[in-house]
Simulated scan of single mutants.
Amino acid sequence: MSALITVEELRALGERPVLIDVTWNLAGPPGKEAYDAGHIPGAYFVDLDTELAGPPGPGRHPLPAATTVTAALRRAGVGPSTPVVVYDAANSMAAARAWWIFRYFGVRDVRVLDGGLAAWQAAGGEVTTEVPAAGNGSFIATAGHIPMLDADGAAEVAAAGVLLDARAPERFAGEVEPMDPVAGHIPRAVNAPTTANVDETGHFLLPDELRERFEKLGVDGSTQVGVYCGSGVTAAHEALALEITGISSAVYIGSWSEWITDPSRPIAIGR
């Protein structure tokens, strides 16, 4: 089953899955404001900063506690076998974080709505400001259902496999750093800006196009692949793009914002 679902496929389902809106903007305003202004009917809001991440330190978006994920999914009415579809405004950057977190904590059937709310509206889908009543789900989150990297693991993948850095080229090169106090990248990492995985409408490129892109970066399915970014959000988007091509990867969830908290870890500059 694909990690993505189209608007047409979602509409064709006989029984609609639980819909979760994770609209989020790194620079603000808060995603809840956008959700309140209009969302897909029946969708529940889950906050990326407080429910898909733990309190900052080390790293800006560390793993949330299993109890936090349990509470969020139960509020949305999710049980052990409930299918879930997550979406955001358009490009799936935040939705991919939810996709990854939910899989890591044991959700068996979770997909991302390709193109997000923008695609839904472009296809004539209605939006509402009505908030659904809290559900009474029975899901219990448990950690470790998919691979995850720590700092040492990321360094090992960079040395023996392919470690993709999902940030913009200028951040990778250390030319600018708007979010973290130290600029640069993990030595031997390969820059693969995840913004290039989607088109101008926020839809993911076709699998063959993504496969060709990753092959040019050294990802051919023959070696371990890891991904990281600034704080573990867009890294999940890169992992989702890889999943679409059939390639599994491990996310360094602490990412650059955690890497730099240990001054003994090496830093590379340049492209």
Rank of each mutant, 00 (worst) to 15 (best):
A3W: 09
L4G: 00
I5D: 04
T6W: 08
V7D: 01
R11L: 09
E15I: 13
E15P: 10
V22Q: 03
T23E: 14
W24R: 02
N25Y: 08
N25T: 09
P29L: 10
H39I: 00
H39F: 04
E51R: 04
G54T: 06
G59P: 03
L63Y: 12
T67V: 13
T70M: 05
A71D: 15
A71H: 09
A71Y: 08
L73A: 11
R74S: 06
V78R: 01
G79V: 04
V84I: 11
D88H: 01
A89P: 05
A89V: 03
A94K: 00
A96L: 01
R97C: 04
A98P: 01
R103E: 13
R103D: 14
L113Y: 09
D114A: 06
L117P: 02
A118R: 10
A118F: 12
A123G: 15
G124S: 12
G124W: 01
V127Q: 13
A133D: 15
G135V: 09
G137L: 05
T142L: 12
I146L: 14
A151H: 05
G153F: 00
A155G: 13
A159G: 11
A160D: 12
A160Y: 11
V162D: 04
R167Q: 08
P169K: 03
A173M: 06
E175M: 11
V176G: 07
G184N: 01
I186K: 01
I186P: 00
P187V: 04
P187L: 08
N191K: 07
N191S: 15
T194V: 14
D199W: 13
G202D: 03
H203L: 14
L206V: 12
P207D: 11
P207V: 03
D208E: 15
E212Q: 14
E212H: 15
E215M: 15
T223M: 10
T223A: 15
V225M: 00
Y228T: 12
Y228C: 14
G230E: 02
G232S: 09
A239V: 05
A239D: 10
A241H: 00
E243M: 10
T245P: 01
S249T: 03
S249N: 07
A250T: 02
W259M: 03
T261A: 13
R265E: 08
P266K: 08
P266Q: 11
I267M: 02
A268F: 05
R271V: 15
